[in-house]
Design a protein around this nucleic acid. Structure first.
Lengths: 240, 240
DNA sequence: CAACAAGCTGCGGGTTTACGCAAGACGGCA
DNA sequence: TGCCGTCTTGCGTAAACCCGCAGCTTGTTG
């Protein structure tokens, strides 16, 4: 068995290397990549079926790399190993995992034990292993309880990118008014009206901008999500 | 000599520990904290004069911790050790360093050698050591060449927080029109008009929201900067 | 099938933004 | 001292935004 490690921090990389050796005696080769681009290439060249992937990397982040890898070989097993459990990451990952694929999401703060267990479960048993903390977010974001609908999330991303109502309408195939409806519903859920109702029209917020910030502070959005969204937007703009 | 390490990743913490031992034979005690809050407390209790500080930490980030530490003992020497050279961090750090204090900014991607050299220079020689890459940003941001004025940066933060023009005017003691002037000048520098001039009023951007996103993508802003700005804003709101 | 909730859409109007134009204010510099 | 560039401010306008109201289309449920 061969394992590919994609991780840009050398310390974490060698830690992972050791953990893989310890947890998987049946693994005879470990190869390493230090960014998403190199990871994709190695995965292709070696037809890797077992990958441990960091999410936040400078060159090309883990989600993008995983997407192209899964597009080429959907049965690839990927363990995401990340510092953060931002909803933006969790949502990003669950959006790209192919039907029936085995994958995992483990936080870097997890114990050695948990990491090794996850490695075995995913690579040997083909089971999905999702960190408890991440799991909570996932259900909140997929089930609609308390969390955000896909359409709400979508429009959040759109205003975060800085599109006008009209542009959003065009992009999503909606009327202007519908876009504004969704916006209101978003403002509502993000609780943007808080200090706005301070009686005075004193410290009023610009709802649109405020919504984005609140989302960032609540980790519904993060840099990586913006980056991806921006790339998609450019693609769409080019397409027409 | 005693050295305090403030860093939330255990791997990096122990790496730092070793590096300090290797670089500073005159150091007899190394103590560790795993977040900003604990770091402040330890610094106070031990009257630490030599600190190595991570910037991005979950509980309380390095900039905030450093600020309170420096407020209590301005002669403390702090080496910031960070993954990123975002302009937002660089600006954040140079904003809080006291006059004449010795400090350093080294990237985690730097070699062992560089790190050890920096440790000695700062803690023994009281010299400032700024990573080459960071240095570039610093000059760009302090000198006005190509970079952003303080007032431009200030208004960027304000719209990022989601304030209205009026609120900004009140907060900064300006007229409405002046705020808008600065905004235009910001839009100009951020090159927000790009695709807007696509002939059609097709894919126009909402300048205000777009400016924030562009700033984020260019790392003029980041999560940590927003977090700090939000705290300051709340303070101001409470004050009146 | 009737009833009802949920989402899309147009209309209308009150606010906020973006920005050109032009009149001061202030500081440097020859 | 007088000219000039930068910064501030007010006025005015067109566009964009926020949102209540009401009519329509759907999918769901008893």
């Amino acid at each position: 068995m061969k394992v590919l490690i994609v991780e840009d921090d050398p310390l974490h990389r060698s830690y992972l290397h050791e953990a893989v050796n310890a947890a998987l005696p049946e693994c005879d080769t470990v190869i390493e990549a230090e960014n998403g681009t190199a990871g994709e290439k190695l995965a292709r060249d070696h037809k890797s079926a077992h990958i441990v992937m960091d999410l936040q990397m400078a060159n090309r982040n883990g989600i993008e790399a995983a997407r192209t890898i899964w597009k080429e070989r959907p049965e690839t097993r990927i363990l995401f190993w990340s510092n953060y459990s931002d909803e933006a990451y969790v949502r990003g990952v669950s959006r790209i995992v192919p039907d029936g694929a085995a994958y995992g999401y483990v936080l870097k703060s997890a114990s050695d034990e948990r990491l090794k267990l996850a490695l075995r479960s995913i690579f040997i048993e083909s089971q999905c292993v999702i960190d408890r903390e991440v799991r909570g977010l996932q259900q909140k974001s997929l089930g609609q309880t308390n969390g955000f609908t896909d359409s709400e999330y979508e429009i959040l991303v759109d205003i975060a990118l800085g599109l006008t109502d009209r542009a959003i309408a065009k992009r999503r195939g909606l009327s202007l008014r519908s876009v504004q409806n969704r916006l209101q519903q978003l403002y509502d859920k993000l609780d943007v009206y808080q200090a706005a109702g301070d009686d005075h029209e004193d410290g009023r917020f610009n709802l649109r901008a405020r919504a984005v910030t609140v989302a960032l502070l609540r980790k519904l959005l993060n840099y990586s999500a913006l980056e991806r969204a921006e790339a998609e937007l450019q693609e769409w703009l080019d397409g027409k």
